[in-house]
Each structure stands twice: as C-alpha cells, then as structure tokens.
Amino acid sequence: MPYKTAQIRLVSSHPEVYEPCDDSFALVDALLADRTNLLEHKPSICLEVGCGSGYVITSLALMLKEEIPSIYYLATDMNPHAMRVTRETLQAHGVDAELINTDIMSGLEKRLEGLVDVMVVNPPYVPTPEDEVGQAGITSAWAGGEDGRVVIDRILPVADTILSERGWLYLVTLAANNPSQICRSMREKGYASRIVVQRSTEEESLHIIKFWRDPEVRPSLKEASTQNRSAPTRLGESLLSQFSRFSFWKSSNGSGSL
C-alpha cells in the first residue's frame, strides 16, 4: 500500500469492542482512494462517529499527517471500552485525536454546527430486532434495527447540522440499508453523492458513499417536482445509473422505487 494506514498488529482490542473487519478496511480504502482530494480539501476538523477500535480515525490521521500536520481530530463512541481501545491504537501509531464518550454527537452538536470538514461513519448497519439497538457493549457496534437503518437515520440529520459548507461525509452502508434511498433523502437536503468503494464479500455487499453539499442539487429537484411530479429528474437518473452498475443492486433492493 502506497500510504500509511493503521497496522493491525498495533490496533488494541477488548472483548466488548468491534475489531477492524471488512467494513473498516473498505472505509479506509475509500479514504485512501480519495486521499488526493482530501489533501486539496485541507480539512481543519475531522470527526469519526463510532470509532470502535480506532482503526479508521488512526488511519485517516496517518494518511494526512505529513501534508497537513495540524488537523483537529475528534472521535466519539458510546462504548466506554472503545474509548480506551481507540486511545491505545492512536498512541501506538504516534497520532492524536480528542475522544468523547457519547451517543453519536450528543453534547457536541450545538457548538460544532457547521464546523466539521470531514466526517467518517461506519455505523451499526446490520438489520436486527429493534431492542438490540444501542445496547451496552459490542452489540451497539452492529445492531441497526429495522433494515439496519435506525442509527443511520439518526446520524444523517446530525451530519447535516455539523458539516461545514464544504464538508464531506463518508458513510458505510449495506445493500439491505437501501443506500439509493439514503442518497435520495440526502439529495433532498442538498447533498450530491458518489460511491467511492463497492465491495462484495461472502456475507455482505458494502458501499462506501461520499456526500457533499452541492448548490445545484436542491434547486433542480424543486424545479423538477413543481413542473412534473411523475417525471424522473436528471439527477435521479444519474444516481440510478451510478448504482445499477452493480448487478446485484436491484435484486437486493427489491423496492425498485427509484
């Protein structure tokens, strides 16, 4: 790999903390693939929600460290063990982030409004019974409730609040989460989106989606909806073509509503 990321042997662990896995690697690969853009973007505040083992925030800090030495990194997790493990992982790699033990961004949301330039999230996306969501310990790392969307749907409005005008969000999604619908709902808030990494494993098919505010997104959508509600917008078409490059997409996303 041409650029440094966190090394697995230096990532700390705890029985109640999610270990770096395919989804974590896919997210870091997406950040690496977008590294040149990130360097041009020159973020001053980067944030990870649900940092778990610390593998992702550590990798992000490592890959930007040389060119942009002074980024303010923040990482949150509701699992107190994850805080300790993330700190150890950061320390083992000689990088630094401020850690806050909280639910998503609770306590930070107000003051960070409009300030975050890069936000990375590997949310609990696995479809589970509702009552498993937000439980103490490692279950909170994957339990996503109905369609695996319960926590994702809480995070998206928070992202909209805290991202700066030029802010970017990188989000891990599972096919079962209906990512095309996620993109559509973000588009209504004025965000364009792009799949940075797509990966299918034996167990799951993952998309790492990047969102950014695009001033042209919202007006076009409004215009289209007032002129002719039944006609698909050009944006909708381009999004569909983006997703349908992957043949499994439609079969795993049975609604076909897009």
Binding site: M78, R84, R87, L99, I100, N101, T102, D103, S106, G107
Partner: peptide, 9 residues
C-alpha cells in the same frame, strides 16, 4: 476520566 469526557445521559 483519563482525559475522556463521559457525555452519556
């Protein structure tokens, strides 16, 4: 605690 604020409610 050890530099980490606990904002859990």
């Amino acid at each position: 605690d050890k530099g980490i604020p606990n904002m859990l409610l």
